[in-house]
Design a protein around this nucleic acid. Sequence first.
DNA 1: CTTATAGCTTGATATATATCAAAATTAACA
DNA 2: TGTTAATTTTGATATATATCAAGCTATAAG
Lengths: 242, 242
Amino acid sequence: MHKPVPNNSLKAACSTCNLRKLCLPVSLSNIEMARLDDLITRKGVYRHGSILYRSGDKFQALYAIRTGFFKTQILNEDGREQVTGFQMAGEIIGMDGISSDAHTCDAVALEDSEVCEIPFSRLEDLGRELPPLQRHLHRILSREIVRDQNIMLLLGSMRAEERLATFLLNLSQRFAVRGYSPTSFQLRMTRHEIGSYLGLKLETVSRALSHLQESKLINVRNRSLEILCLSGLQACMGKRTR
Amino acid sequence: MHKPVPNNSLKAACSTCNLRKLCLPVSLSNIEMARLDDLITRKGVYRHGSILYRSGDKFQALYAIRTGFFKTQILNEDGREQVTGFQMAGEIIGMDGISSDAHTCDAVALEDSEVCEIPFSRLEDLGRELPPLQRHLHRILSREIVRDQNIMLLLGSMRAEERLATFLLNLSQRFAVRGYSPTSFQLRMTRHEIGSYLGLKLETVSRALSHLQESKLINVRNRSLEILCLSGLQACMGKRTR
DNA sequence: CTTATAGCTTGATATATATCAAAATTAACA
DNA sequence: TGTTAATTTTGATATATATCAAGCTATAAG
């Protein structure tokens, strides 16, 4: 299942990366950018199913996703699992590890993926010299906090179909930002993984998808998803029982 | 309900603060510590029910709680509310605001409370000069991420009684760290607020408390809580249906 | 190409929690 | 200190989601 992780690595180049606006929207001079390039290494391909880092691993770096798709999940003592997020190109993962110098979740590739490794203490060093870079790091950390708190809202107060609508609209919007169709995309994760993320059982996810399809809001066939009515989904997201 | 916030403010002194080990466990020289003191202002008392900051407020500072107790909550468009945390002395709040320069939640005092205001851009400035301070800020941000992800686990995979046991043990542990009894304390929040935090209705919270009491794990009378068996609660926390 | 496995859907039923309601208790306030 | 409002508890019932089960489909492996 988990293919070995190749060891080859090459110099990354944020300066010429087409994801820069997503990943690192910071204005730096050429010289400053070169220093950043210097610090970042492009890692080889992580095959589908392989693990970028595991809970308990020593924390040393953040990872910017160049291509592909990941999930992060925590497991507690009694084997309970919670998918804490799905990450795509231009997003940065690994920030959970800073607080205790060890990762607290697993990051697993859901398709063949490439990442850039950003050694954290060197990033901190550079941040001290380049205030815009420092500020950007702080924003990224805070954005993760805000994201997580919105998932708490979802888990704490939404019903199954609303959770799913919220999830699909979130994916849609993130694909759109990356220049892909906001209304037609492939789900990279299983119903079980969606369920874990949304606090639902896979059967409930399946039923909710079927129901959204009956309502003509989406078309879903296996992993292919088409959103037929964005505003309808939005309305569904905000629906309350009373 | 919401008392006006007093405007008087005085110089804070981390250097002599008895919460320093909790709030700022960083080794700095006297001179460095003085520079930090210089940046932090001690705000007047926030009365019970008053608001430290509101969602939408411009983000300018983090706040270290000196005394008292706060809740943070987000409200979405359709009036749904989610309590995202309860914070006590020595903890730092406001980090949600960094990402967009505006707060994304409300912070409300659940009892008369005092805070130290830490202007964020000045903290960043000082962080560039004092690496241990910078590192500490990063740890705090990351710790918040880890905390939130553990709540996601709770909300996504635990049943009512487990959620409550987890919550009570978390409070217990935080009181213990502060030198208070881990087994006997006052709840500062209503059943409704506990329910909002745990993704449950207040009636369910009340029933779960009653049931833990019947099981001789706790004694609860209104807001007074006594834990009779820490290990029993721990066992209850890890209980799964199957 | 065939077979095995993992993933998905749908139905029937069980169950945990929500909802509704009323009474009891506590806290706030005038 | 009396009065009102808020909070809490508990019961009866409703409902959303989980569970169990079976068949189906797609994907991976031999």
